[in-house]
């Protein structure tokens, strides 16, 4: 066996991880999903393979996850992103008992047991509120690059109150705040607060005392992470590249599957 591949086809991004026999990351990539899950998957795998300096045809096993998991060419197995995020988060932080994954079109909280096994989970998939898509829409509205939203939020002296959790109505509220010359920093902090409150409500169902790890693209937003820490009253683990954790989890499962098969 040379390497395995984990690929996570999400609504906004498609992420691939190439993993070596010793659970070492040989390469990874993050590309936009665009209008074709299959094309995005191909692009992500080719890009990750190029980064790792390997030839994709030599992959021992590809496991796919995410909403587009069924559309991945060459996938040997499909696993949900819930199991993958749990496995990926546990790989980096073995004290993890709760994973918070705020993705492009939904958010999830996952209670994790020993070895990264899923014990329970809750998902918000009813609307874009409390998701990466919500922040993306607001970033466009406020003309603040998505990757600078966290910095803006942390610089806020006060905080705007965003009462609605619906993306459409929250956008109207933002328009009204902008019209009143409300500082952008405070608006962004208020938006982050509304996302955090929504996700926090789900974490309450899990009653976890151990480590909390945040994954998914929104975990890169330092403003959201800070407010979540404040709400939970504890430090949150954030991997160096939180966006690839689902793909990493899939790759870890591929590796374990092959090792399990080899052991008979």
């Amino acid at each position: 066996m040379e390497f395995v591949v984990g690929i996570d086809v999400g609504s906004l991004s498609t992420d691939a991880v190439i993993l070596g026999e010793e659970e070492n990351i040989l390469g990874y990539s993050i590309v936009g999903t665009g209008d074709s899950s299959t094309d995005a998957a191909r692009e992500a795998m080719d890009s990750a393979a190029a980064n790792a300096g390997v030839d994709m045809v030599r992959a021992s096993l590809i496991i796919s996850t995410g909403y587009g998991r069924a559309a991945v060419p060459g996938s040997g197995r499909q696993v949900t992103e819930i199991a993958c995020h749990a496995a990926g988060a546990y790989h980096f932080f073995s004290d993890t008992e709760l994973v918070i994954d705020i993705g492009g079109q939904d958010s999830k909280v996952i209670r994790v047991g020993k070895g990264g096994k899923v014990l329970d989970f809750a998902m918000n998939d009813k609307c874009a509120a409390g998701t990466g898509r919500f922040l993306e829409v607001m970033s466009a509205k406020l003309k603040i690059p998505l990757d600078q939203m966290g910095t803006f939020s942390l610089a806020a002296r006060g905080e705007a109150s965003i009462s609605s959790v619906c993306t459409v109505f929250a956008e109207s509220e933002v328009v009204s705040l902008v019209a009143r010359n409300f500082p952008k920093e405070e608006i962004v902090k208020g938006l982050h607060r509304s996302v955090v409150n929504r996700v926090w409500a789900m974490t309450r169902q899990m009653s976890v005392k151990g480590g909390v790890t945040m994954t998914g693209g929104v975990a890169k937003n330092t403003g959201v992470v800070a407010l979540m820490e404040e709400r939970l009253g504890r430090k949150i683990n954030v991997p160096a590249e939180p966006q690839i954790i689902g793909a990493l989890g899939a790759a870890l499962m591929a590796l374990r599957h092959l090792k399990g098969a080899a052991a008979g």
């Binding site: 909403y67 949900t80 899923v118 998939d125």
Partner: peptide
């Protein structure tokens, strides 16, 4: 069923 619902059921089955 939506894609999200499929994920929920499959994650439950895995669990």
């Amino acid at each position: 069923m939506s894609g999200q619902l499929v994920t929920r059921l499959e994650a439950f089955a895995e669990m």
